[in-house]
Design a protein around this nucleic acid. Structure first.
Length: 379
DNA sequence: AATGACCCCAACCGCTCCCTA
DNA sequence: ATAGGGAGCGGTTGGGGTCAT
């Protein structure tokens, strides 16, 4: 079966198409707009918009999505900003294809929970409900129905079968899955990040279905991580994924999983700034608390400010900074362009487990030295 | 090389839930 | 108790990429 492999690459391209779909035009995705919010951008996000959103959230958090776009100078509705952040820009997102383990976990959890994507996502650190939903609809549903076919040779329920299947269905998944799996299995790396699919996938596979699971509990408000912690003993208890992430306990958890990154030569003070900066909300993916409230805010302020200056985003968050073009598109002053050189797309090309905030433009990046945004990538 | 079919997934919509006054 | 507003969730859409012919 073809083509999950290109997904990483192609999704990058997906990120910043020419916007002809959305330029003020009626060609946005999905249905017609429900609200009369004319003049707002729709459709794919530009790097400028991404940067603006990232910078704003890094600096102020996202306590109020509705007010955020205006305060950030984005011509977007709050919902759109929220989705973009949760599904794409959040620092703790795992990129790349799903591993066989992750897929098995999804299948099992779906069997237990049904289409409770956010619940399922809370068991898959770094994965969003939207992503999981997509994977389910495009791959796993078919696979499951195939397995259920009587007489189907694949229906033998062997673990090997599952992984074979997964590998078969997603060639790329093998490529990136090896990457991701390597990360997952990196003992020192996965301390917080991986919950269900963490260090010991085998354990998870077994435990998720074989232990007693009180589905009613899972469907209730009990944090999924606790439930799963009960299901799989060795499992770390800080799943950080999905849109529900903001409500889960993730502080400091995500971080180590993403350590398996190329060595980056950083000035020590950069790290200390980042340390002071990202220790709390942002790193955890919970940016509801303005980061400026965290320790080391002075350095933080300086750093964010610098970043914004470099990006041409700095200045009062004022809509006057936004210059809608004739098509209704916003452009901001600054060096960003939608070319290969732009920090966001550059970041997205950097690899499956890379996170948008990690290597996104910073002064160092712009001068050719990658620097990571959040602490979670710290070595 | 060109074209059509299929697949992927980011982003949309509308509904529901939750919180606050 | 309840009404209103905001956030979150799940279902759906369709542009663009990839594969097959």
């Amino acid at each position: 079966m073809p083509s999950r492999s290109p997904s990483s690459a192609s999704s990058i391209i997906h990120c910043y198409p020419d916007r002809k779909r959305s330029d003020g035009g009626g060609m946005g995705r999905g249905r017609a707009p429900c609200c009369a919010k004319v003049g707002l951008n729709r459709g794919s996000w530009t790097p400028q918009e991404d940067m603006r959103l990232i910078a704003y959230i890094q600096k102020h958090g996202h306590a109020n999505w509705r007010a955020l776009p205006k305060q950030a100078g984005l011509l977007r509705c709050g919902k759109s900003c929220r989705l973009r952040w949760i599904n794409y820009l959040r620092p703790d997102l795992k990129r790349g294809n799903f591993t066989a383990d992750e897929e098995e976990t999804i299948i099992k959890l779906h069997g237990l929970l049904g289409n409770k994507w956010s619940k399922i996502a809370s068991c898959l650190p770094g994965r969003t409900d939207n992503e999981i939903k997509n994977v389910w609809n495009t791959h796993l549903k078919k696979r499951v129905s195939q397995r259920e076919k009587p007489g189907d040779t694949k229906n033998k329920g062997k673990a090997a079968d599952a992984s074979d299947d997964a590998d078969a269905h997603s060639p790329s998944s093998s490529a990136s899955s090896s990457t991701t799996t390597a990360n997952n299995n990196n003992g020192s790396s996965s301390s917080g990040d991986t919950a269900c699919t963490s260090k010991e996938p085998e354990t998870v596979e077994v435990s998720l279905i074989e232990q007693d699971i009180d589905i009613s509990d899972m469907l209730m408000d009990a944090p999924t991580e606790e439930l799963l912690a009960g299901l799989a003993a060795p499992m770390p208890t800080s799943p950080c994924s999905s849109s529900s992430l903001a409500t889960t306990t993730c502080v400091g958890a995500v971080s180590d999983e993403l350590l398996d990154l190329p060595e980056i030569d950083l000035e020590p003070e950069i790290w200390s700034i980042i340390d002071g900066y990202g220790g709390a909300a942002v790193v955890s993916g919970d940016a509801t608390v303005p980061c400026t409230a965290s320790p080391g805010e002075e350095g933080t302020e300086w750093w964010v400010e610098n970043l914004e200056k470099e990006l041409g985003l700095w200045g009062p968050m004022d809509e006057s900074l936004a210059h809608p073009d004739p098509l209704g598109q916003v452009s901001y002053p600054g060096p960003l362009t939608e070319t290969e050189g732009d920090p966001v797309s550059t970041y997205f090309r950097s690899g499956p487990t890379a996170s948008p905030l990690r290597e996104i433009a910073s002064p160092a990046v712009l001068s050719g030295v990658p620097v990571r945004f959040g602490v979670e990538g710290r070595v």
